[in-house]
Simulated scan of single mutants.
Amino acid sequence: MADSILDEAYERVSQTGPERNGWLSNHAPMAAEALDRAGRSAEVHPWLDSYADLMTERPRGIARIAPDEWRDPLGDPVRTGDWLSFFDREMVEEPWRAVLVRWWPRLLPGIAAGATHGVIRVGHAVRALLDAETPARVGELGQGLAYWAARWQPLAPAGAGPYRASDPRAALDAVPRVPDQRYGIRARLAQLADLPGWADAAGAVPGSGSPTDRLGDVVEAAVLRYGTHGHGNEVMMVHAATAPNAVLRCLPALPESLWPASLDAGWAASAAVTAAYAPAEGRPAPAAPAGVDPEEVVERAMATGDPHAIKFADTAVDAYRHGAGVPALAAAARCSAALATE
């Protein structure tokens, strides 16, 4: 029953565009999958009802993108409709895993796409597909890949390493901040190329062990750091955790040869959001509400109605299970409290 509800949700939003107002992401498919995963499938359609006015029609295309002519329209949001049609064809002509493996190394360098929502949407779709392969989920993966391709945006180059066996939380603390934080994410990310220390911070991936362990540690650190630094921007700082977690969710569907580059990109995305939005000073870590558990954290996020609160709670539960424990749930509770007042 839960599977059919998620598929119905994907079908319901399949003719909507990936953005509204020119650049704000359509969070409907991501939040729907997060609610379904949390065992709250009965809440999926009511939440979509509340979000319906924020969805727009799927954009029309301009010209067909040929399989061997993908480079020129990459990162052109005017071609969003063409990219949606392109990946509709791709997902019909080949198994979804083959499409993902071919396009992952093409899209990964542009991980900043849509304020990292491109990779985040793909991560939710892949997690759903790893649970059950259905036409609706295959179609949703295609739409996520199309959005990523249309908004493809590389970060400023990172250094070449070497990898350092340092604590990911300390590494996030060491990320330099962009000097001008008055404008949106594109203006902030544009400053990274000239930011002293950015290349070294972005290239020195913290932690040790396998790429999956290291990405899990980065996600955990970003969740915990939200508890102390999320006030810099309660919405945007969410992505310091959800972007690398999206990469982590895709690894089981990818060959291990792609894991090292995925780790690099996931860390760079987290570092970039940190550089762009983290405040200069942190606040004391939040105390966990009495009796808090994963179910309670999801309930608090749902009560806000905010998709970022829902997705952050989803990632915080992953961090809790990875080893962060109750402090990760406390960070999610702080996020929901902040976004409830937005």
Rank of each mutant, 00 (worst) to 15 (best):
H239M: 08
N233Q: 12
P244E: 03
A240Y: 08
M237I: 12
G266C: 01
P211T: 03
A265K: 10
W259A: 14
A204N: 09
E256W: 09
Y226E: 10
A221Q: 02
A241D: 05
G230L: 02
A268G: 06
H229Y: 07
L224Q: 10
M236C: 12
A204K: 03
P206R: 01
T228Y: 05
G207Q: 06
L263I: 11
N245S: 14
V238K: 01
A241C: 10
H231P: 07
P255W: 13
L248E: 01
S210M: 14
V219G: 00
V205F: 05
W267H: 03
L195P: 10
D213P: 00
V205K: 00
A253L: 14
T228V: 10
N233K: 11
A261S: 13
Y226K: 02
G266T: 02
A204F: 08
H231A: 02
A204L: 04
G216Y: 04
G227A: 09
V247D: 06
A199G: 06
M237Y: 07
R225G: 01
G230S: 06
L251M: 15
S257Y: 04
M237A: 08
A222H: 02
T228H: 02
G197Q: 06
A268Q: 13
P211D: 00
G197C: 11
L251A: 07
E256M: 12
M237K: 00
A246N: 10
A253R: 11
D217R: 12
H231R: 07
D217V: 13
G227N: 01
G209L: 11
A240T: 08
G232V: 09
A265H: 05
A240W: 06
G197L: 11
G232Q: 04
P252T: 11
H239A: 09
V238Q: 14
S210R: 12
V205R: 08
W198E: 03
E220G: 07
V223A: 11
P196F: 05
D213M: 11
N245A: 15
G216V: 11
G216I: 04
V218K: 00
G203A: 00
T242I: 13
P252D: 14
L258M: 15
T228N: 03
M236W: 14
W198A: 06
D200Q: 13
V219P: 01
V218R: 09
P196G: 08
R225V: 02
A268F: 02
W198K: 04
W259Q: 10
T212W: 01
S208Q: 15
P255A: 14
G232S: 05
C250F: 01
V218A: 13
V205I: 08
L254G: 02
S208N: 09
R249S: 15
G216Q: 09
H239K: 09
P196K: 12
P196H: 06
Y226N: 11
L254Q: 12
G266Y: 02
S210L: 12
M236L: 15
N233M: 13
L248M: 04
G266N: 09
P255T: 14
D264T: 13
L248H: 05
V235S: 10
P260G: 12
W198M: 02
L248Y: 03
G207I: 00
R249T: 12
L195Y: 07
P255H: 14
V205W: 01
G203P: 03
E234L: 13
S257H: 14
L195C: 08
G209F: 10
L195M: 05
T212E: 15
G209V: 05
A241Y: 09
S208L: 05
N245K: 06
C250V: 12
L215Y: 12
A222W: 00
G216C: 07
N233H: 15
R214Y: 08
